[in-house]
Deep mutational scan, measured.
Amino acid sequence: VTLFVASYDYEARTEDDLSFHKGEKFQILNSSEGDWWEARSLTTGETGYIPSNYVAPV
Rank of each mutant, 00 (worst) to 15 (best):
A6Y: 01
D35T: 10
Q27H: 11
A6D: 03
I50Y: 00
Y49R: 14
Y8K: 11
D16K: 15
G45R: 03
F20E: 00
D9W: 04
V55A: 05
S7P: 04
N30L: 06
T44G: 03
T2A: 10
R13P: 07
N53V: 08
K22R: 10
N53F: 10
S19R: 04
E46S: 09
E38A: 08
L29T: 06
S31N: 13
Y8S: 09
K22F: 06
L3M: 10
E24H: 06
W37Y: 08
T43F: 09
T43L: 13
T43W: 10
W36L: 07
G23D: 05
S7N: 14
Y49N: 08
F20G: 00
A56P: 04
E46A: 12
E15I: 11
A6C: 07
R13E: 11
P57F: 06
W36R: 14
N30P: 04
S41K: 12
G34E: 12
D9I: 02
E33H: 13
S31K: 13
G48S: 01
S19H: 08
F20S: 00
L3V: 13
Y8F: 12
V5S: 05
V58F: 10
S19D: 04
G23P: 00
Y10I: 02
W36A: 05
T14C: 15
R40Y: 09
V5I: 12
G23S: 03
V55G: 03
I50W: 01
H21G: 08
S19Q: 04
E15R: 11
A6V: 03
A56Q: 14
Q27P: 02
S32Y: 09
V55C: 04
E33R: 14
D9L: 01
S7Q: 15
W36V: 07
I50G: 01
I28W: 01
T47K: 09
T14F: 15
D17S: 14
T43N: 09
V1D: 14
T44V: 01
T47I: 14
I28S: 00
T14V: 06
V1A: 12
F4T: 04
L42Y: 06
N30Y: 06
P57E: 08
A12C: 06
Y10G: 01
I50T: 01
S32F: 09
Q27A: 09
S19M: 02
D35R: 07
G23M: 03
A56N: 10
P51N: 09
A56D: 09
G48C: 04
T43R: 12
D16I: 14
Y10D: 01
S32W: 09
A12F: 03
D9N: 07
L42T: 06
G23V: 00
T2K: 11
A56M: 14
F26G: 01
S19N: 06
S41M: 05
E24W: 06
E24P: 01
S19C: 06
E11P: 04
D9E: 06
E46P: 00
W37M: 06
V55Y: 03
F4C: 09
D9A: 07
N53D: 10
A12T: 05
E46Y: 09
G23H: 04
S31D: 13
Y54F: 11
Y10A: 01
T44Y: 02
G23L: 02
R40C: 08
V1F: 13
S19W: 03
F20I: 06
E11A: 10
L3H: 10
T43Y: 08
V58G: 05
T14N: 14
T44R: 03
V1Y: 12
V5Y: 08
T2D: 13
Y8L: 11
T47C: 10
D17V: 14
P51D: 06
L42E: 07
Y49Q: 08
N53G: 12
E33C: 15
D9Q: 04
T47N: 05
E11Q: 12
V58I: 13
S7K: 15
T2G: 12
D35Y: 14
F26T: 01
E33Q: 14
Q27I: 15
K22N: 04
Y54I: 07
R40E: 05
K22L: 05
P51L: 07
E33G: 14
V55S: 02
H21V: 14
R13I: 11
R40N: 03
T43K: 12
W37E: 01
D16F: 15
E38F: 15
P57Y: 05
P51H: 08
E38T: 10
Y49G: 03
A39E: 00
G23N: 05
S41E: 02
F20Y: 02
P51S: 05
S32L: 11
T43I: 09
Y8H: 10
V5H: 04
F20K: 00
Y10W: 09
W37S: 02
H21K: 15
Y49V: 07
L42D: 04
D35H: 10
G48N: 01
W36F: 10
R13H: 09
E24Q: 06
I28C: 04
G48H: 03
P51E: 03
Q27N: 06
D17P: 01
G23Y: 05
V55R: 01
E46D: 09
T47E: 08
G48R: 02
E11T: 12
P57C: 07
F26E: 00
D17I: 11
S32D: 11
T14Y: 15
W36M: 12
Y10L: 02
L18Q: 01
G45Y: 06
S7F: 14
F20W: 01
F20L: 06
E38H: 13
E11I: 13
S32N: 11
E24N: 05
A6S: 06
L18P: 00
W37H: 03
E46N: 11
E11G: 05
E11C: 14
N30V: 08
D35C: 13
D16W: 15
R40D: 00
Y8R: 11
T2E: 13
V5D: 04
G23A: 02
F26L: 08
E46W: 08
H21D: 06
I28V: 09
Y8W: 11
N30D: 12
S52K: 14
P57W: 05
A12G: 11
A39T: 02
D9S: 08
G34F: 09
G45L: 06
E11W: 08
I28A: 02
G48V: 03
L42A: 05
I28F: 03
L3T: 08
G23E: 03
S41G: 02
G45E: 04
E24R: 00
A6F: 01
N30Q: 08
